[in-house]
Amino acid sequence: MDADPAPAPFRLHPAAAWALVAAQFVFLLLLGFLPWGSLWPREAATIVIGLVLVALGVGIALAAGGALGRTLTPSPIPKADGQLVTSGVYSLVRHPIYSGLLVLGLGLIAIGASLLHLLAWIALLSILMAKARFEDLMLLDQYPGYRDYAARVGRLVPGIGRVRS
C-alpha cells in the first residue's frame, strides 16, 4: 500500500485574493472620505497627531514596499519567482505594508473622530488579518525558512502573532 500523499500546498483562489485587495482599498477610501464626527474634539493637536500617524503609516508602507522590490504584489498570493525578505522593516514584522496601512488608518480615525471611521478601520484590520493569514500559509509552502522566520517575527506588531515552531 502506498503512503499517504503529502498535503497539497495551500493556494488562495486568485479571485478571492483580488476581492480582499479590493475590499482593502474600499475601506481605506472610506477612512479618507467618511464625514467627520464629534466623538472627540477635532482640535489642532488632534489633527497634527492624525497627520503624523498618516505620514508614519505611509512611510512604513513605502519602506516595506521598497524592500520587496520586484517581489511586491498587492495580492496576498506570493510571486512564484519572488524572494523572501527578512531584513529591514521585515525583521520587525512579517507584513509591514499592512502595519503601515493600519497606522495610516489610525491617523484618519484621529482626524475623522467618528464611529464610522472606527468601524471602517476595524473592517480594514479584519481584511488585512485575513490577507496576512492566507499569505503566511502560502509563504510557509513556498519558502523552507519561513516557519523559523515566522516563529521569531510578529505578524503586524513586533512580537505579536508569531507562529509556533
Rank of each mutant, 00 (worst) to 15 (best):
D2I: 12
A3H: 04
P7K: 07
P9S: 08
P9H: 06
P9N: 01
R11V: 03
L12Q: 05
L12Y: 08
P14V: 01
P14Y: 08
A15C: 07
A16K: 02
A17R: 00
A19H: 09
A19K: 00
L20W: 07
L20C: 03
A23D: 13
Q24K: 04
Q24I: 02
F25Q: 04
F27P: 00
L28I: 15
L28Y: 09
L28S: 11
L29G: 10
L29E: 05
L34V: 13
P35D: 03
P35T: 04
G37I: 15
P41E: 15
R42M: 12
R42W: 04
E43M: 01
A44P: 01
I47F: 06
I47N: 07
V48R: 00
G50P: 03
L51D: 05
L51E: 04
V54C: 08
A55F: 04
V58N: 07
G59H: 06
L62Y: 04
L62A: 05
L62F: 12
A64I: 07
G66T: 13
G66P: 03
A67W: 11
L68P: 11
L68R: 13
L68H: 13
G69Y: 09
G69R: 08
R70H: 14
R70N: 14
T73N: 10
P74H: 07
P74S: 09
I77C: 08
A80V: 15
A80K: 12
A80H: 11
Q83N: 14
Q83L: 15
L84D: 04
V85G: 01
V85P: 01
S87E: 15
G88M: 08
Y90E: 01
L92T: 00
H95K: 01
P96H: 02
P96C: 08
P96N: 02
I97V: 11
Y98N: 02
G100L: 03
L101Q: 03
V103M: 01
L104R: 01
L106K: 07
L106A: 09
G107H: 01
L108D: 01
I109E: 05
I111A: 03
A113W: 12
A113I: 15
S114M: 10
L119I: 13
L125F: 12
L125T: 05
L128I: 11
L128N: 02
L128S: 10
M129S: 13
A130S: 11
A132N: 10
R133K: 10
E135Q: 10
D136F: 01
D136I: 02
D136W: 01
M138C: 07
M138Q: 11
L139Q: 00
L140V: 12
Q142V: 09
Q142F: 07
Y143C: 06
Y143A: 03
P144Q: 06
P144S: 06
D148C: 08
D148N: 08
Y149I: 15
R152M: 11
L156Y: 00
P158H: 10
P158T: 11
G159E: 15
I160Q: 07
R162H: 09
R162I: 15
V163E: 14
V163H: 08
S165T: 14
